[in-house]
């Protein structure tokens, strides 16, 4: 549960990207002489829906494992 909530909070804080996870983002660089706009790619991690799906899967697996592990009786 903590994993899932943490992943959703991280995803939302990083911009709630509803596309795929990105590790690079384009930055437009204008050139005043030619009027062209260049593109520089900056390394930045932006989690997407695949990140949420992986977190959901991980949380589900952990929850499943927790049911299999016997609890200590007092």
């Amino acid at each position: 549960m903590v994993l899932l909530v943490g992943a959703i909070a991280f995803w939302a804080a990083a911009g709630a990207n509803r596309g795929w996870t990105k590790t690079r983002v384009p930055l437009k660089v204008p050139d005043p002489v030619t009027g062209l706009e260049g593109v520089q790619w900056q390394h930045k991690f932006v989690p997407g829906v695949d990140f949420l799906a992986a977190a959901l899967l991980g949380a589900g697996l952990l929850a499943g494992v927790s049911f299999l592990v016997p609890t200590k009786s007092r």
Partner: peptide
């Protein structure tokens, strides 16, 4: 050629 997603 660069796209934002490394796997793509």
């Amino acid at each position: 050629l660069i796209v934002p997603n490394p796997m793509q």
